[in-house]
């Protein structure tokens, strides 16, 4: 259902949610927006967080021999691009990965729709910024909050003023003119295996892993034994030890590994799950120290190659 709430009413909703959940939110620290415990909605920053908060569902590093019961958490202020990442991950890991699934089921995300396009972002190309799937989706207009609540969390809004939701669709339309979507249709067939861009990217890349670590859709991990623990840790498909077999990594060249990353996002996932594994957040571009731009992979003219 759709609602419209005042600031005070939103605080009351926050308080009600915080009874059932441990509340986290985007907060500013030394000019950096990070996630931390919050005790009121007023503390929550509307600015985009410095990183996609995927550790709420996939921890950077954890022992996988035990699955402890998880706390119920509510995360306020996640942006649509980052939340969309979880819906894409769901297609691959939900109900397969017990750790992810346990946390996913117990985490409530309250996504804040960006009021204006961010520099470099291209979420409109992948169904943003107003999402079709959400727990509670919020769009502020002055002192009022437009809210879309999913059935599961609709109860927190009972008694508040209903809204027809047209503000969201109008806003999304306007946003899409300000951030014209890139031409992604058919990308899975257009992209070229032998394009020279892979080698050009590789000539710059220093294998830092930033594109993977920053990506709201990257879910791959490494598994290793550590004493009496078996750990998994976020991994990077750019590294040569990734998916190593007895013969080493079957993609021995850095250009091949970079291509694999983009093929996974724009070809394999699309063909198997019917979605591109990218939310247009632009985080991999921002964190890349050598300016490798995923948008170039989308807009590159492959026809002459």
């Amino acid at each position: 259902m759709n609602y419209i709430l005042s600031k005070e009413e939103m605080e009351r909703v926050f308080a009600a949610i915080s009874v059932d959940f441990e509340s986290y939110g985007a907060v500013e620290k030394e000019g950096e927006v990070v996630f931390d415990r919050v005790h009121s909605l007023a503390e929550v920053s509307e600015n985009r967080s410095r990183y996609a908060p995927k550790e709420f569902l996939i921890r950077r590093n954890e022992n996988v021999l035990y699955l402890e019961e998880q706390q119920r958490k509510a995360v306020f202020g996640i942006k649509s691009c980052d939340l969309k990442g979880f819906y894409l991950m769901d297609k691959q890991v939900l109900n397969r990965d017990p750790f992810y699934t346990e946390r996913r089921n117990k985490t409530l995300f309250v996504n804040f729709v960006c009021n204006a396009p961010c520099e470099g972002g291209f979420c409109s190309s992948f169904g943003g910024p107003v999402l079709d799937e959400f727990d509670i989706q919020v769009l502020r207009e002055g002192n009022n909050y437009h809210v879309m609540a999913s059935d599961k969390y609709d109860k927190y809004f009972s008694g508040y003023r209903n809204d027809d939701g047209s503000y969201f669709s109008d806003f999304n339309r306007k946003f899409n003119t300000e951030m014209p979507p890139l031409e992604v249709d058919g990308l899975e067939n257009r992209i070229k295996w032998n394009s020279p861009i892979w080698k050009e990217f590789a000539s710059r890349c220093i294998s830092c892993g930033a594109c993977n670590y920053s990506c709201p859709t990257c879910y791959c991990f490494d598994l290793y034994d550590d004493g009496d623990e078996r750990k998994r840790e976020w991994d990077s498909c750019i590294l040569s030890g990734f998916t190593s077999s007895s013969a080493g990594n079957i993609r021995s060249g850095l250009d091949e590994r970079l291509r694999q990353r983009f093929y996974h996002k724009f070809v394999y996932f699309k063909k198997s799950k019917d979605e591109f594994l990218c939310t247009g957040c632009n985080r991999c571009v921002e964190d890349c120290p050598v300016g490798i731009d995923i948008k170039e992979v989308i807009t590159h003219d492959y026809s002459l190659e």
Binding site: R50, Y51, S207, C208, S236, E286, C288
Partner: peptide, 15 residues
């Protein structure tokens, strides 16, 4: 994460 306001690394890091 790299500190994006740092004049040294501007938010970037290596492995």
């Amino acid at each position: 994460i790299g500190y994006s306001r740092s004049p040294v690394n501007e938010g970037k890091l290596c492995i």
